[in-house]
């Protein structure tokens, strides 16, 4: 599978990264080089092999349903949440108007 500039543009748009034609051309070469290199994985016989689900086998731990049990992951921290906002509008984050 080798990709062309159309594909690169499509990927860039899916990735929400604006890309110039010059960058696109450069990226076509680089991505194809890398993709061609990873193609070798297809030579490995993986029949009957499960994809790795978790790196270190351990049981999933579930959290108790307690509000603000840990201040680090609880609510009522609006100032912290908004502290770094590039466009803070009162208690909201502002974004360019969206038409739905």
């Amino acid at each position: 599978m080798s990709i062309d500039s159309e594909t690169v543009k499509k990927i860039a748009s899916l990735s929400r990264i604006a890309i110039s034609d010059a960058e696109t051309t450069a990226m076509v070469g680089e991505l194809n080089g890398i993709l061609k290199w990873v193609e070798q994985l297809s030579e490995v016989d993986v029949s009957g092999v499960e994809p790795m689900a978790s790196v270190i086998a351990k049981k999933s731990l579930l959290r108790d349903d307690v509000v603000n049990a840990d201040p680090n992951t609880g609510g009522n921290v609006r100032d912290k949440v908004l502290a770094n906002a590039p466009a803070k509008e009162g208690s909201f984050f502002g974004v360019p108007k969206v038409i739905e």
């Binding site: 009162g90 208690s91 909201f92 984050f93 502002g94 974004v95 969206v98």
Partner: peptide
């Protein structure tokens, strides 16, 4: 998202 609060912006409440 709230679209009626500002002429050119939508507001985000999480």
């Amino acid at each position: 998202l709230m679209h009626d609060q500002h002429p050119t912006m939508s507001y985000v409440d999480l």
